[in-house]
Amino acid sequence: MKHCKEQPEDLKRREFIGKTVLAAGAATVAPGVLLAVANAGSDSEGVNDGVRWGMLVDSNKCVDGCTKCVEACESENGIDRMQRPPGQDDAMWDAQRPQWIRKVKLRDKQTGEITNLPMMCQHCEFPPCVDVCPTGASFKRADGIVMVDRHTCIGCRYCMMACPYKARSFIHQNVDNQSIRTPRGKGCVESCNLCVHRIDAGGSTTACQDACSKDGHQAILFGDLKDPDSDLSKALRAQSSRQIRADLELNTGVRYTSV
């Protein structure tokens, strides 16, 4: 049986029994078995590093008080399906409910100038969360998306400590009414994955970008950092932008202008 290389083999017992069953029934099932195993191994390639997904956020266009991107993210990723555990107070619920994107408001102490920006996983080229993860659950896809494989996440939350952007959330409660498309459960860490299901289905926008554009702000631009002709690359060439905490040299995939 073929396995993905990066996955630790944790199914010894079943493999053991399974193989024995195969041996016992080999005469009758062998052709079918071989066929199926061949299918399971014949990999269509999946994502590659010819692209690197990223984002440009124009905080000048990010409107004070608007939360369209947050709402869109929550419904796209099934976060709005989570219910407050009975008896939990507002403060605890706000602190513990997952947030893949949040609005941050900066106020210049000297001038009083207000800057708004959405903050989410910055999809670093050198992600600290991946460095510290003891199980390999925190990983970076070939196309630059940093995410959690919740099948291997043990909920230790080292990644949450390591992230300079406070971009990750931990699920503290049992979840019951997930949609088929957005699995989620107690005890794992999760964060913005740039709407990975859309990208894999050939989509070219994220839910937050769509919502922001629909509301007339156009503060969020998603695209391929490696394609010089992408709108994102053009925008990055046309105006000066910066990484948040550039001093950490993480080479973030999410960039900001007017900050």
Partner: peptide, 20 residues
């Protein structure tokens, strides 16, 4: 006999490699 292996194999393909 093998659904558990198949599921595990393909789960990794989806989550890690983006094969849907």
């Amino acid at each position: 006999r093998n659904h558990m292996e198949f599921l595990k194999h393909d789960r990794d393909r989806t989550v890690r490699k983006g094969v849907r």
